[in-house]
Design a protein around this nucleic acid. Structure first.
Length: 747
DNA sequence: AGCACGCCGACT
DNA sequence: GTCGGCGTGCTC
């Protein structure tokens, strides 16, 4: 009787075996169990190669147990634990878990999307860079006689490691078949991988930087917070020296032997910032991480971060997931920038997750902006005893006494003569700058020649066959392009509706402004900066450099141009289509316009010459412009917050958006409506808006609908989504694609 | 997501 | 009689 009972007790039967639970890149919110002989809880966080269906996948070991709910026959064995890659730390895993839970995204996809693509690919050759090795305790205690029996290469490796840990290169120098020797020694448990010794830093070699009183105060507060969790909102007008403040903070963190993570919105900004960091911290190893990096350098940077070789990781939102065992400071520059929110797959906000990561790592998180998001701003103005409070750090003046704020002026388009969308006042000012040998910038957030082609007879306009959008006319290569799906065609010779040959471009884009300006100012050196002109790798950098050297008189471009770049000789900025934001249904449009205008205005007059900004508008009386003109963010923010409070929008509520896509509008709409109905029955402190077509109803051949959920309580929203999602999973027809977007940017 | 299985229309 | 369409279901 006893033996029977023992045999049927699963935990007894299982106590001898080891089962690893892995995160795999499948859209299922569960872990997968594998037989894993010899794997212990020490291996949690390691990557492993497993057979999965007909495939073979890389997964991450998240748990090690000895029981499984899966029937015995189904369990398969791990093929190999990847011991050459260090394990992800418990803190890294905690971040992934939180991310999966908060964004209601499958854990496996969160974990795997955080890994560099080179590690995700199952078939992988040697890791780049150098591994470091050391003797294990068993190796140190190894009797000399045992060693004497080993082949020569193994003995030599062993001898070399007696002196301390070594990089692979030095370890195997001059040894034949050294790879085998290393493997054998690892198998015997005599040597193991280890982290390379951390390099110490010399103090920054550059001259001491003179900080203003405000800057010093800001640095002091961040420095005092090193070693504990504390978010800051570093808010300063453009050119107030925000970068200098966080560089000082970085210096303090490095001096304590901590690693630093710096997130920036644009790939374009990383080389510039990398140079700045390299110059300031010559002894620190600075790596950058962004999606344009080739696989091998990206893997290398990632491993450098994980093995403590890198002191500073600088990158775009994906750098948030870089493993940093000694993380001591996080900086999010231009924290309001929409590019911190990923718009497909795992729809995470790198800024919000950075704050959580700071909590996990017990370190300060510095959000930096001249025009903070209203969410961050609201956190920073709440009563000091509020636990969620971000400590405000204010820089109210430009750093150089000589650099005055640019003046802003509205130009009423309805009162002025405009040629090709440019007013007489702006043309006059451009002429003046040319005469003085100063640079100008024309900002128009629309690439192409004109946003539409218009039949002069019947007002027909070519539209994208896959999207509910007009095709944009690109004159340089005589094509019509869809800016939403990439579809393109030749320019039609005649109207698709009435057959007339009288088709004309309607409205202005960067190309049209460029050609007009070139005609108007024949001697001026004109350059256009948009996604089309900077497609080739490095071309953006070359354009900016050439502008910086003063080889360009008039820059014309989209928001690519608005960010971060300093042109000392630039004294005039013209803004051409600011009004577009007024027609947007999105409740964040004013906030974005304000940020964009302040940002682009910040390009003017960064040195001693005063800058001037002309904003062309048809609505000069609009309330929004009153606060833009003063560039008074606090005033703008308090007006906006009042509106948000009245409308119950964030930061006074939390939003989640169910986005539905299907091949027919009916199907998308039906599922959205059904989802709303299902949700309505669960409701607990969450209100659901009616299912509606998405702002861009058709995109890339998919019809889109959406349901907005709103709640006063973040916890209630989380509970609601947790209950709603399984209902959607079981009821969604296969022809429907759907995703829950938590804290959506545009609704 | 992949990748199989499976059950109905046009082809050697 | 087979090739292949994509609907349905599973992967430890």
């Amino acid at each position: 009787v006893l033996s029977e009972a023992l045999l049927t007790r699963p935990d007894f039967a299982d106590s001898q075996r080891s089962i690893a639970r892995l995160a795999l890149d499948v859209p299922v919110d569960s872990l997968f169990d594998f037989l894993a002989p010899g794997v212990t809880s020490e291996d949690v966080g390691r990557l492993a190669l497993v057979p999965f269906g007909k495939r073979r996948c890389v997964g991450v070991i998240l748990e090690v147990t000895n029981t499984s709910a899966v029937v015995e026959e189904k369990l398969r064995a791990i093929e190999r634990v990847m011991l050459d890659v260090p394990a992800l730390s418990p803190t890294d895993l905690a971040l992934f878990r939180f991310c999966a839970e908060y964004y209601h995204h499958p854990i496996g996809q969160v974990v795997l999307s955080a890994l560099p693509p080179a590690l995700r690919a199952a078939k992988r050759s040697r890791l780049p860079g150098e591994s470091w090795f050391r003797l294990t305790p068993a190796g140190r205690g190894l009797p000399a006689v045992d060693l004497a029996k080993r082949p020569l290469a193994q003995r030599r490796v062993f001898e070399r490691l007696k002196m301390g840990s070594l990089a692979e290169g030095e370890l195997v120098a001059g040894l034949p078949r050294a790879g085998d020797a290393l493997r054998r020694l690892i198998e015997r448990g005599w040597i193991e991988h280890t982290a390379p010794p951390t390099r110490g830093f010399a103090r920054p070699s550059a001259l001491p930087y003179k900080l203003s009183a405000e800057q010093r105060e800001a640095v002091a507060q961040i420095r005092d917070a090193l070693g504990r969790y504390q978010p800051f909102l570093l808010h300063g007008v453009t050119a107030s020296g925000k970068t200098e403040v966080y560089l000082h903070a970085v210096e303090h963190a490095l001096a304590l032997g901590r690693q630093v993570l710096v997130l920036v919105p644009e790939i374009n900004l990383t080389p510039q910032l990398e140079h700045l960091f390299a110059a300031r911290f010559p002894d620190a190893h600075i790596v950058s991480l962004h999606s344009q990096l080739a696989q091998t350098p990206r893997l290398r940077a990632w491993l450098d971060a994980q093995t403590l070789r890198a002191h500073v990781v600088l990158g775009t939102r994906l750098a948030l997931f870089a493993p940093l065992p000694k993380l001591g400071l996080i900086v999010v520059d231009e924290e309001q920038d929409p590019s911190f929110k990923q718009q497909e797959g795992l729809r995470y906000s790198a800024r919000d997750m950075a704050v959580y990561r700071g909590k996990l790592a017990d370190c300060p998180v510095v959000l930096v902006s001249a025009t903070p998001s209203l969410e961050s701003w609201y956190h920073s103005i709440q009563a000091p005893r509020q636990p969620s409070r971000y400590v405000p750090l204010l820089l109210s003046r430009r750093a150089s006494a000589l650099a005055v704020m640019p003046t802003m002026r509205l130009v009423d388009e309805s009162q002025e003569q405009c040629i090709e969308g440019i007013s007489k006042s702006l043309l006059d000012q451009l002429a003046i700058r040319l005469e003085r040998g100063e640079q100008s910038l024309l900002f128009i957030n629309r690439r192409g020649f004109s946003p539409a082609l218009l039949c002069q007879q019947c007002a027909w306009m070519p539209e994208c066959p896959h999207c509910s959008a007009r095709l944009v006319f690109h004159k340089t290569d005589a094509r019509l392009r869809c800016h939403h799906c990439g579809h393109q065609t030749r320019v039609p010779s005649h109207c698709g509706s009435c057959g007339s040959f009288d088709l004309a471009p309607a409205g202005q884009g960067t190309q049209r402004i460029e050609s007009f300006v070139e005609r108007q100012f024949a001697t001026a050196r004109v350059a256009r900066v948009d996604r089309d002109s900077t497609r080739a790798r490095g071309s953006a950098h070359r354009l900016f450099e050439s502008a910086r050297r003063g080889e360009i008189d008039i820059l014309i471009g989209t928001q690519l141009l608005a960010k971060g770049h300093d042109f000392a000789n630039l004294t005039l900025v013209g803004v051409l289509n600011a009004d577009a934001a007024m027609f947007s249904a999105d409740f964040r449009a004013p906030e974005r316009l304000f940020a964009q205008l302040v940002q682009v205005a910040g390009r003017a007059g960064r040195a001693e010459r005063a800058g001037e900004v002309l904003v062309q508008t048809r609505f000069p009386g609009h309330a929004l412009y009153a606060s833009v003109l003063t560039q008074d963010f606090a005033r703008f923010a308090s007006l906006q917050l009042e509106e948000r409070r009245l409308s119950g929008m964030p930061p006074f509520s939390y939003l989640a958006l169910l986005r539905v896509e299907a091949k027919t509008a009916g199907l998308a709409q039906r599922f959205a409506a059904q989802a709303q109905e299902l949700g309505r029955r669960l409701m607990a402190g969450v209100s659901l808006f009616d299912a509606v077509p998405a702002p861009l109803q058709r995109k890339g051949g998919w019809e889109r609908a959406q349901v907005l959920a709103q709640s006063k309580s973040r916890a209630a929203m989380r509970r609601f989504l947790t209950a709603w999602r399984p209902l959607l999973e079981t009821t969604a027809p296969r022809a429907v694609r759907w995703v829950i977007d938590v804290d959506p940017l545009e609704v």
